[in-house]
Design a protein around this nucleic acid. Structure first.
Length: 891
RNA sequence: GGGCGGAUAGCUCAGCCGGGAGAGCAUCGGCCUUACAAGCCGAGGGUCACAGGUUCGAUCCCUGUUCCGCCUACCA
């Protein structure tokens, strides 16, 4: 009769996870259809670095995407989740260079071509590590479509975009101040510089007048740059310098005459009001220099050492130079003072080295025209950013955007498709490698050695991965993508740039929604970092607690706009939930016929708990759908958690046991078997997006199911969904039983009565419907409250020496002749009365307030009135019970 | 400098359109009730950061303050 498919006593995730992941891949269940009659749903993965190993941020990011993808599949969508990695130019080059250095060589000795080969070899070996790790999370990406930003197709897209933007005048080359990292030996975009406050000094240096008498004192945090000064600037409104007759000063140590200029940029209130101008080493000075036609003298070289122009300081490292130079100034009596000064200094986001603003010839994208459209698309709702507080951040940045430096002086990346003719100097930008110079026909063409910023190729990700620039079926089916799921840390780096490129090249936004999730922090709210030593490795968590528990934890804590604080303890809690589900299934399987439930029969009598749980299932299904549709993962997770544990397990399974055991006849048993199976089956579907492994495992054990749970239909869309109906009567009747049972349990608990002691209970109610419900479901109450008998009465004579409780319109009596502890019962009732009285004062206060009565909406007033009456009645009953107990005790 | 977010039970956090303060964990008491001790039953615990304001009514809306966290910025 019962099912032979019994489960182990505890859930063991390890082999289950491996088995089902392989099954899904073998069955091709993650595959998107290029064309289908279904609704399309697509997500492109934020490509992790090839050098990356999975951290908590990836885990959260990908689990949320997987939840969405699995959910949409259950809703019947044709889902594409496009996976891949990016080539992480600087980071990868650094890693491989480190490896070479260990081997006693370096990239220059290898040469460019050999070095690139080395990187590819490295990638073959280690580059897929993170992909395997994503699989451990259960990620249901369409792996057959995995992409890499350096793939041929994607590289072609990069070249096409570069050439087109160049031809449109949106890419230009020029000498500007850029951020230079001496360690990575490359230019960086403004975004790639991280500002950090450091303790520095403000050096006050006097620049004498040519006459030798007097001078102007300037203040600087980087004294070594003075060697490249080409002017001193003061504000034209500055009265201190208004009467100044001198037109130049002598640059100390260099003995060069430099002009005194007047520029509104200079801040009157800072330092001495005089600014040294170094156009080659400061972005503002560069601008001032342009305005005043000043020469730019580069004194710090790309290698971090002082150049020829630095005179006798040539060849010194910049920090050595600072030391030597300030020493000399001091000796010359020109260093007036040095005061400590906190200020922000830029650091390379890849290697933390201090970056140097440096004049350099680079390639730039003129982003303003692109950015305007990207801003507009969010303003007019074409793309929604969720939660919307990020809109402001997005606009702040994109509305104030500056040109994007896209060239990098490294080798690993997309080499810029530009060539210079050695003969005539002509610049050729072209998709294909040119054979001859179109200008002079010469064959000596030299390709630009710089490569493009990695983000330049990532910006094309939503369409380059789908085959662009070809017109592919994939693009037609899945572009624009449905949602981008990402952390806010790359909102500018990546999201904004994808918006710009998508709109420009596809004529449409790259995604309808952008869901910005939080950062994962440690349990104290600190950012996880290797140096702090507070990182939790997601894989070790999975190893210890199972993927499903881990995933559910992430979902449950992924509230919008809030960081996720991760600790193993929390995962442990949700492992208990996984196990709870497991055991509920185990129980079900013990009670379901092997062949599955019989089909519905007219003669089946569906019981109150059956109707109730179906109604609850209906509600929780809605809640999960609403939660996921609105990216409220925590709401969805909480709803299903509450349902499974506290409704299905705590109440339904307990209430339905007698029927399942056949104690109420074959008809009720058949109905309950059917409902039990149905509810468990739907629950598995609801939980599947969160906990794919255990749900698949149970699904396969459950009689009556076939194939993968991934092919199931989300309950509310299922063809037989009509049988799961919201049922207000069932909910209120069951609610009554629950409060009566809880009342009895409360008495037992508070009175410290052993559960083994068989009690009788009497309930009295003036409401006939209430009495009817209680009588009809007497067995449920006796079972769940563990009492021997339940007598349902109209209010009348009250049992003597009884403990009492009031539940809704019911007074509960537990006769405790001989064992009642009067003091304890009096204390209990007084506590209850106090609670009720407190509620009562709150509502009385409102009802005695004229303003409330006249101004509050009628339904609110009615509600308070109703509540008031209920509390009055409850208090009366409690009070009379208390009086009786006191009377009995006195005797 | 500009901006954003947070402050709710011992801890971590929910709380949507203003109308009875919730969950999980932890704590305390009682249970080996044959799906689950990774469990079951029950209980205690909060001036919703502070000060004003709007409102009949504020955890929620407005203003200010304090304390955290983050983002951004070309004051040398």
């Amino acid at each position: 009769m019962t099912n032979g498919n019994l489960l182990d006593k505890a859930y063991n995730p390890h082999d289950v996870e491996k088995r089902w992941y392989k099954f899904w891949e073998d069955e091709n269940l993650f595959a998107a259809k290029e064309e289908s009659g279904q609704r399309s749903y697509s997500i492109v993965i934020p490509p992790p670095n090839v050098t990356g190993v999975l951290h908590m941020g990836h885990a959260l990011n990908n689990v949320l995407q997987d939840i969405l993808c699995r959910y949409r599949r259950l809703r019947g969508d044709n889902v594409l989740w496009m996976p891949g990695t990016d080539h992480a130019g600087i980071a990868t080059q650094n890693v491989v260079e480190k490896k070479l250095s260990k081997e006693g060589t370096d990239r220059h000795r290898l040469g460019r071509e050999k070095f690139i080969e080395e990187v590819w070899t490295w990638r073959e070996k280690y580059g897929s590590a993170i992909i395997h790790q994503l699989k451990r999370l259960g990620a249901s990406c369409d792996w057959n479509r995995e992409r890499f930003t350096m793939d041929e197709g994607l590289s072609k897209a990069v070249r096409k975009v570069f050439v087109q933007l160049y031809n449109e005048g949106l890419i230009y080359q020029g000498s500007y101040i850029i951020n230079w990292c001496h360690r990575c030996h490359t230019a960086l975009a403004d975004l790639e510089v991280e500002h950090e406050e450091v303790e520095g000094n403000l050096y006050h240096i006097r620049y004498p007048f040519p006459s030798g008498e007097g001078g102007i004192t300037v203040a600087t945090t980087r004294p070594e740059t003075m060697l490249g000064d080409t002017a001193v600037a003061v504000n034209p409104e500055d009265e201190r310098y208004a009467a100044l007759k001198e037109i130049s000063v002598v640059l100390p140590l260099m003995n060069r005459l430099i002009p005194i200029i007047r520029d509104r940029y200079v801040d009157l209130s800072f330092g001495t009001g005089a600014l040294k101008v170094t156009p080659a080493h400061d972005p503002n000075d560069f601008e001032i220099g342009k305005r005043h036609n000043l020469p730019a003298v580069k004194v710090i070289g790309d290698d971090g050492k002082m150049t020829e122009e630095a005179g006798k300081f040539k060849g010194l490292d910049r920090s050595e130079c600072r030391k030597a130079l300030t020493e000399e100034l001091k000796n010359a009596g020109l260093l007036e003072k040095v005061i400590p000064h906190r200020h922000n200094v830029g650091h390379c986001y890849r290697c933390r080295t201090m970056v140097e603003p440096n004049l350099s010839k680079q390639w730039f994208v003129s982003v303003k025209p692109l950015a305007e459209k990207a801003a507009e698309a969010v303003r007019n709702g074409k793309t929604r950013i969720i939660p919307d507080m990020w809109n402001k951040t997005y606009f702040d940045w994109i509305d104030n955007i500056r040109d994007w430096c896209i060239s990098r002086q490294i080798w690993w990346g997309h080499q810029i498709p530009a060539w210079t003719c050695e003969a005539c100097g002509k610049l050729i930008v072209s998709m294909e490698t040119p054979e001859t110079c179109p200008g002079c026909g010469a064959k000596q063409l030299i390709q630009e050695s710089d490569v493009l910023d990695t983000w330049f190729s990532s910006a094309l990700w939503p369409f380059s991965t789908m085959g662009w620039p070809e017109d592919t079926a994939l693009l037609r089916t899945f572009y624009p993508t449905s949602v981008l799921v990402t952390g806010f840390d790359i909102l500018f780096f990546w999201v904004a740039r994808m918006m710009m490129m998508g709109i420009h090249f596809m004529g449409d936004v790259p995604f309808e929604d952008v869901y910005v999730h939080a950062l994962v922090r440690d349990e104290e709210g600190k950012k996880m970092s290797k140096s702090t030593g507070n990182v939790i490795d997601p894989l070790s968590v999975i190893e210890k607690y199972g993927t499903d528990a881990f995933r559910f934890t992430l979902a449950a804590f992924a509230a919008q706009g809030r960081d996720v604080r991760m600790s193993e303890k929390r995962v442990e809690g949700y492992r208990h939930f996984v196990n709870k589900l497991w055991n509920a299934a185990r129980f079900a399987l013990m009670n379901l016929p092997e062949a599955g439930p019989h089909p519905e029969k007219q003669t089946d009598i569906i019981s109150l708990p059956d109707r109730w749980i179906l109604s609850r299932l209906c509600k929780v299904t809605d809640a999960v759908a609403q939660g996921l549709d609105a990216y409220r993962f925590n709401d969805a997770a909480a709803a299903v958690y509450q349902f499974v544990w506290h409704e299905f397990c705590d109440w339904y399974l307990e209430a339905v046991k007698p029927a399942l055991y056949g104690k109420q006849g074959a008809q009720k048993q058949a109905a309950s078997v059917r409902v039990l199976e149905r509810v468990l089956r739907d629950t598995l579907i609801l939980l599947h997006p969160f906990m794919p492994f255990i749900t698949e495992e149970i699904w396969h054990k459950l009689p009556g199911t076939k194939g993968s749970v991934m092919k199931a239909v989300f309950p509310s869309d299922a063809p037989d969904a009509a049988t799961v109906l919201s049922d207000a009567d069932a909910e209120s009747e069951m609610g009554l039983l629950i409060s009566v049972i809880t009342g009895i349990r409360n008495i037992r608990g508070e009175m410290n009565i052993s559960p083994s002691l068989e009690l009788d209970a009497v309930v009295q109610s003036g409401d006939e419907a209430v009495r009817k419900t209680l009588s009809e479901h007497r067995d449920i109450v006796t079972n769940l409250a563990r009492i021997a008998s339940l007598s349902v009465q109209v209010p009348g004579e009250k049992p003597k020496a009884a403990a009492t409780a009031v539940a809704d319109a019911v007074t509960i009596f537990i006769p405790l002749e001989g064992i009642i502890d009067f003091d304890r019962e009096i204390e209990r009732l007084e506590k209850e009365i106090l609670k009720t009285a407190n509620e009562l004062t709150a509502s009385s206060k409102k009802l005695s307030n004229e303003d409330f009565l006249s101004k509050a909406p009628a339904d609110v007033v009615a509600k308070v009135r109703e509540k008031q009456e209920l509390f009055i009645e409850k208090r009366q009953k409690l009070q009379s019970n208390l009086d009786r107990i006191k009377g009995i005790e006195l005797k």
